[in-house]
Simulated scan of single mutants.
Amino acid sequence: MARILIVEDSPANMMLVETLLESCGHTLFQAERAPQALDIARREQLDLILMDIQLPGMDGIEATRILKADPRTSGVPVVALTAFAMKGDRERLLQAGCDGYIEKPINYIDFLAEVAAIIERADPAP
């Protein structure tokens, strides 16, 4: 199973994502703010980071840029987990370095399928 960092400042959203991912057996790390997420990402061997974009202080876009510029974390897929659903938002987030985009509110079946696909792409079986 994968080691996943969830970066989310909403307790309700954190609980939902955590419950879904734990049901699949993943090991989870949590951060409510970007600086905390950067520390965890540098310290842990992660397979995936689910990044809320609208975080207080440093937003998820800036945190993603920092992660992608750091050799210790640049290879970890970062997926935007966001309520941004306006035309052009997906492209803007992908240009900022996100490896994927999942809209909130999440559909749990689509969410778990997307997470599984991203993990598989990042670490293909031999």
Rank of each mutant, 00 (worst) to 15 (best):
M1K: 06
L5P: 04
L5Q: 08
I6F: 01
V7H: 01
E8R: 00
P11R: 01
P11A: 01
N13F: 00
M14T: 07
M14C: 05
M15N: 00
M15P: 00
L16R: 00
T19Q: 09
L20T: 03
E22P: 01
S23G: 08
G25V: 05
H26V: 02
F29N: 09
E32Q: 10
R33K: 15
P35I: 06
Q36H: 14
I40L: 14
A41F: 11
A41C: 10
R42D: 07
E44C: 07
L46E: 00
D47R: 07
I49M: 13
L50S: 01
D52T: 02
Q54G: 12
Q54C: 07
M58D: 07
D59Y: 13
I61L: 05
E62Q: 14
E62Y: 05
A63E: 11
A63T: 11
K68A: 11
K68Q: 12
A69H: 09
A69Q: 15
D70M: 15
P71E: 11
P71Q: 06
S74Y: 13
P77A: 08
V78T: 13
F84Q: 12
A85C: 12
A85D: 15
M86P: 02
K87Q: 14
G88Q: 07
R90A: 09
R92G: 04
L93A: 04
L93P: 04
Q95T: 07
C98V: 12
G100D: 12
G100Q: 06
I102Y: 03
E103P: 00
K104D: 06
I106T: 05
I106M: 10
I106P: 01
N107P: 02
N107Q: 13
Y108F: 13
Y108R: 14
L112I: 11
A113Y: 06
V115R: 00
V115N: 02
A116H: 09
A117L: 14
I119F: 02
I119Y: 01
D123A: 15
D123T: 10
P124Q: 07
P124R: 14
A125N: 07
A125Y: 12
